[in-house]
Each structure stands twice: as C-alpha cells, then as structure tokens.
Design a protein around this nucleic acid. Structure first.
Lengths: 189, 189
DNA sequence: CTTGCAAATGCAACTTTTTGCATATCAGCC
DNA sequence: GGCTGATATGCAAAAAGTTGCATTTGCAAG
C-alpha cells in the first residue's frame, strides 16, 4: 500500500486538508494517483495516529472548519525509508482492452462509440496536462530547476496520453474499415 | 469488477484450466490484466456456481489432474451484455511516480538505480510483446484478419512500453545531470 | 425561502485484491 | 532416496478500495 506514502509526499510540499488532497488527486496528480475521499480521510486519521502527521483544526468563517495536516519528522523519516525501497512495477487491469480483445462478440458500432468516448477523456486529460506544462515552462529557470522532478512526472502523463491517442488512431482505423466492410456486405444483398 | 469478464473473454477463445489462465495473465496478457492464482481459482468457482462456466475434471497421467473450464451459453450472454456497457476509464496508482515526485528527499544515486531497474523490466516486456507481434505478422492474411482485435490490444502494450522508455530517457538525462552537478560541487571543496 | 452547489468530513457495509500458508502429482537430476 | 521445479489447486485472514449514506456551513441564484 502506498496511498499513505502518496499522502506523505503531498504533505511534504505543504500542509493540506483531506479535501485539498482529494482535489490534487482529482486534478493534476490524477495521472498517477487516485483515491476516493473516504479512503483519504481514513488514511489521514491513521497516519495521524501513528504520529507521522500533525493535525491542526482550523476554523473558517466563510466555509466549514477544516483539519490541516502537516508531515511530522517521523513522517518524513518514514517517507525517506520508503523512498529507498524498490517499488514494484505497476500492474494494470484495463477493462477497455478486455472489451476490444473480445470485440468480435460485440456490435462494431458500439465499440466505435466506446472508443470515441475514451478518446475524448484522454484528450481532455492531455489538454489539461499540457496546460500545466505550459505554466511550468513560463516559470523562471531557477524555479523550473526546483520543480524538475514533479515536472518529470507530468511528462510521464503527457507522453502516456499521447501514446494512448496514437494507439486509438490505429484502433479507430480498423473499426472504420470493419464498418465499411459491413456496409459493403449489406449493399451486396 | 471485471476479472470475471476477463476470464470469460479468455474462455471464449478456448477452454482452459485456472492454471492456464494464470499463465496467460503472467505472459502475453499481463500487459492489460493481472490476477493472482488465488483470485482466479476463486472466481472460476463462482462463475461455475452462477452457471456461466462449465467445468470438466480431466485426469492426467503425467501431471496432476486439472479442471478444464469452458464458457456456457449464459456465460456468453453475460459477456455480451457486459461488452455493451460503457467501461470506466482506467485509473492508476503508480508508486514509481510518487517516488520521483518526492525525489528531492531521496538519494539521487538510488533513484537512478531504481529507474534502471524499471527500465530493464519495461524493455523486457517490450521485447516479448514485439516477439508476439512478429509471430502475428508472419500469419497468413486471413488469420491476421481474424486476430485483428487481440492484435490491437498487443499494439497498446507496444506503444505504451515505447512511451514509457522514451520517458525514462528524459528522466535519466535529468538524473545524470544532477549526479554531475553533485560531483562538481564535491570537486569544488 | 428554498434549491443547488462548493467546501468539508465521516461511518458502515461490501467487494476486491493481497498475503501467507498448505498440499498433491510427477519428471528429472544427482 | 531425496531434491528441485513445473503443474495444479485451494483456504483463511488481512489489507485496500468502492459504494451508499449522511451531515454541516455558507453562498448565490431564482
């Protein structure tokens, strides 16, 4: 489990509330980490109990009160310990690829709709990652240097999404060819 | 949950034992689906109980006996039903990217070792996927046409791994630059 | 004045996945 | 005769993740 270490990593940059962390996961960091709010809040409490985080309740006049968490020295030590461990390579379970694999059983038109839907999502993700990249590239060189490693994780997102879209081109070309074939067969009758 | 549908998809091509399925996941299909044997065996029993699979115990003289599962008509119907559903886009949790993000806290040398280790794994995966692609390309055109959709899932693996390696080049260039910088600083003293 | 939305947090039940342990058959090797 | 390794299957507990439900504050729009 590394949700806890993902949280420690985020809090290493700056203190944040559970709500803030979830927002990060939903926005920029969603490319490499995802978690529901329920999981995050629970984990924050556990990390607090273990002494890896400090928690300050902060009253707000315009919004509901919040709990701001920050990393403690022992939390930072734990993060360092974890960083030195080798990480298991990522495994993935991709339902869309299963559907494509079994696609001979499906309606070709439905596959095309599904691909188009996913393409739109990936394109949106790419656009927003590229926006963030643009902001990074407008920073002064010293700040760029400081943010270099997070930037490289962003690059992973960008390169990954571009590869996905290039693949989608191949798939859509094939599905279009199939649709044409079906059309021609229908015409023959 | 789509492990069950991944299994149905595999069995749609040909009957197999739990052991066979696990082997598929470990080998070629590992790019898009992963599951431990415990999970697969359990799911096979459940699918059987629901009537979506048929199971035949097959005695073997040279090896332990095995249970060969095949998809039933109701299983095929369920698979079709599932194929028509929209799939949620994949989310991922990538510990390596978390480590890189927090990399300022880590030993640069350790990051480089870790990257090299992961690069080797991805390169191996790419090599084996490309071997499979080569086999596909040597099939006669009719057979290629029949295998076209599974082949496209293979392409996803290939394009994905290439993108990963291209990204690793960027990361390694940066880590090498950091190492040189550290070296120069040490030399100054 | 109520409806809806963003900010903010949480419990409880459930499903899915991982981890650890366990066992049996047979082939080939030393 | 004992070891390793591939084949083949499973139980049980724990951890991780999802789903459904629930609540409070305050703002803004209608």
């Amino acid at each position: 489990m590394s949700l806890r270490h993902a949280i420690l990593t985020l809090l290493e940059t700056e203190p944040a509330s559970g709500y803030d962390i979830v927002k990060h996961f939903k926005q920029s960091l969603g490319y490499f980490w995802n978690a529901k709010h329920q999981q995050v809040y629970q984990e924050l409490r556990r990390l607090s109990d273990e002494g890896w985080l400090l928690c300050v309740e902060q009253a707000q006049s315009d919004k509901p009160d919040k709990k701001v968490y920050s990393i403690s020295p022992s939390g930072r030590a734990e993060l360092k310990r974890w960083l030195a461990e080798p990480a298991a390579p990522n495994t993935l379970n991709d339902a869309l690829l299963v559907k494509l694999y079994a696609g001979a059983l499906a309606e070709p038109a439905e596959l095309r709709v599904e691909m188009a839907r996913h393409r739109a999502i990936h394109q949106d993700t790419l656009d927003s990652l590229q926006d963030i990249e643009q902001q990074y590239l407008e920073l002064d060189p010293a700040e760029q240097a400081r943010q270099r490693l997070p930037y490289l994780t962003l690059r992973r997102g960008i390169l990954g999404e571009r590869a996905w879209l290039a693949w989608a081109d191949e798939v859509e070309a094939e599905l279009a060819a199939r649709a044409e074939q079906l059309n021609a067969e229908a015409f023959d009758k």
